[in-house]
Design a protein around this nucleic acid. Structure first.
Length: 565
RNA sequence: CGGGGCGUGGCUCAGCCCGGUUAGAGCGCCUGGUUCGGGACCAGGAGGUCCCCGGUUCAAAUCCGGGCGCCCCGACCA
């Protein structure tokens, strides 16, 4: 491709509203342009990368027996009502104004509908159906360039199996395909178990990339590889170090002391001698939750600990009625509430907590001696430096971007939409489904997040829009031009993907900066002085290393560099 | 949805507080010329609904009110 012919509008400066590196560089390198909040046009250079990523995805999906579909984005609302997801998605679902249609945010319904009509026998199973298609979600706050958009490309696939064992297999096939896809994209990623949330189903896993721009928080053990979303992550908790003597209970007047920090300061004690109280409503029943010091309640863990049901924090106006005091003075002594305490508090003594009377606290609380109606669970968030549950190495807490998510759905959608099959005995069963997604633009954004410097993008050799960037330093020099043209022809003949900067009206420095910005892994620079010695220069974008090569050896050298046959 | 910020040629921004020449700069763009190994130089030129609507005023980019859009933080996120 000739740079004089392909539309790559690079810029020296980035728009002020681009904040994260991938967004800045995708703009500057002429890959994308914004149209509205969370909606981007992909320009030829950016779309070329999209196609590269899609190629890899298709290759791996086809390898596990996936069949590519192209489903409609415009869906009758009715089908979404059958599964209750008009309500479940709420404002996230785009509604069409002049007809009862919605814009699809995902495609479980459509897949189940097709299966309901056409998959009738166990002989038709299993199936893996996938597509790469535009999804629409009315995100309340799009952000970070293409990382969270209102319109985005998603590879979504769906497995149809006759039973749960089959689903396990399809699920594992996807997990393995996803590992291959992200590895082929040269991404440093990790996998975490995730809660399946409102999607329904029994198991789910996320594929994450560590990044400051991430919206999820994960816990990672660099030693043994343990990784989990902080919502469910566990750590090895050390038992509470009891004081030798337990003091007796004592009421203390603590005017205007509300927070744990204020309490610790007021009494001149460490926060770890304080127990923080939170009141939750579990299926209409209030419960008292106790945390050590300033630890926050991990509501997802609390939900799991309590088993079935809904939980919510009590409203401030409810507190006084339930406990006799307002937030800041609530505690475990003299209460009838079921107490749920974090595991870190087990065995604690000489603790201070609220007195259930405004402006009073109680000291000398011995959890073993004084509290009977109490259960202990791990309900705190793992913190940086806590020790790994497996190997007791210090854990890291990191921000991460979710690249892919795989779900065991079960029969929720097949039952709602009547997707059933007959087994060998002629008995009818709902199809067991799985659903699996990859954010295509996110792969590209993550690639850039992981591979860039102050000058621009650094594409890995294995996945780059082009492999070689051929630069004629001065195209008005006839020798340079004819050499470039010859090399360009030879590279094309050798199936080397080459971007050829044949622009006449651009200075050398401009070309070099553009080349570093758009980040093709190898640059071949044809300049006057080296040409006189019958040589050209190869520069590695990643390292900046340069070497001179005889023109006659260039193609072979490039092939070696690019691991081509 | 709560908090904060912003909106002026294609881009980055100044001007606004304290209303008053023809609304500026750098980059980019066009024409011609000179350059040609790290975003060159000279000369000439094009390009503006100062986000929109309303108000105040002799006079509004500037002050006031309303709206819209965009960004950031938070909440939310199958």
């Amino acid at each position: 491709m000739r740079l004089s012919k392909i539309f790559i509008p690079t810029t020296k400066e980035a728009p002020a509203d681009a904040v994260i590196p991938s967004h800045v560089l995708m703009m500057r390198a002429g890959m994308i342009r914004p149209l509205a909040a969370g909606i981007y046009s992909f320009l030829p250079f950016g779309y070329r990368m999209i196609k590269k990523v899609c190629e890899i995805i298709r290759r791996e999906m086809d390898a596990i027996g996936g069949q590519e579909f192209h489903l409609p984005a415009l869906n009758p609302k009715e089908i979404w009502e059958k599964t209750g997801r008009v309500e479940a998605f709420g404002d996230i679902l785009f509604h069409v104004k002049n007809r009862d249609y919605v814009l699809a945010p995902t495609h479980e319904e459509i897949i189940a509908e097709i299966a309901a009509n056409h998959v009738k026998s166990y002989r038709d199973l299993p199936q893996i159906w996938y597509q790469i298609q535009t999804k629409f979600r009315n995100e309340p706050r799009p952000r970070s360039g293409v990382i969270r958009g209102r319109q985005f490309l998603m590879k979504d696939s769906y497995s149809l199996d006759r039973d749960w064992e089959g689903l396990d297999k399809s699920y594992e096939l996807h997990a393995e395909a996803y590992r291959k896809i992200f590895s082929a994209c040269k991404l440093k990623f990790f996998e975490v178990g995730a809660s399946s949330g409102a999607m329904g189903g029994t198991g789910s896993q996320e594929f994450m990339v560590e990044s400051e721009a991430g919206e999820d928080t994960c816990v990672i053990c660099d030693n043994c590889g343990y990784a989990a979303n902080v919502e469910i992550a566990k750590a090895n908790s050390t038992p509470y170090k009891r004081d030798d003597n337990s003091e007796s209970l004592k009421e203390i007047h603590t005017p205007n002391v509300k927070t744990i920090d204020e309490l610790a300061e007021f009494l001149k004690i460490p926060t770890t001698k304080c127990a923080k109280s939170r009141v939750y409503i579990h299926n209409d029943t209030p419960i008292l939750v106790l945390m050590l010091g300033n630890d926050e309640v991990n509501e997802e863990k609390l939900r799991i600990a309590l088993g079935a049901g809904k939980i919510r924090p009590a409203h401030p106006e409810e507190l006084s009625e339930i406990t006799g005091a307002d937030a800041g003075s609530i505690g475990p002594i003299e209460t009838n509430l079921q107490i749920i305490a974090d595991i870190k508090l087990k065995g604690a003594n000489n603790m201070v907590s609220g007195a259930n009377k405004n402006d009073y606290h109680i000291s000398g609380i011995d959890f073993d001696r004084d509290l009977s109606n109490i259960k202990y669970y791990d309900i705190h968030y793992v913190q940086e430096g806590d020790l790994c549950v497996n190997c007791k190495s210090p854990l890291r807490v990191v921000k991460a971007i979710e690249l892919g998510h795989i779900f065991k759905l079960g029969t929720k959608y097949s039952e709602a939409l009547g997707a059933k099959f007959l087994d060998e005995k002629g008995e009818e069963h709902p199809i067991v489904m799985g659903s699996y997604g990859i954010g295509v633009e996110r792969i590209i954004a993550c690639l850039i997040e992981q591979n860039h410097d102050e000058k621009g993008i650094i594409w890995p050799k294995e996945i780059a829009p082009f492999q070689v960037h051929l630069i004629g330093v001065n195209m008005k020099n006839d020798e340079i031009r004819s050499t470039c043209e010859k090399l360009y022809f030879e590279m094309n003949e050798s199936d080397i993907e080459v971007l050829y900067d044949d622009r006449e009206d651009v200075s050398a420095g401009y070309k070099f900066n553009d080349a570093d910005l758009i980040g093709i892994p190898l640059q071949v620079i044809v300049g006057e002085k080296n040409l006189a010695k019958n040589k050209v220069e190869i520069k590695h974008r990643a390292t900046g290393n340069k070497k001179l090569v005889e023109i006659g050896l260039l193609i072979r050298t490039l092939q070696d560099e690019l691991f081509l046959p």
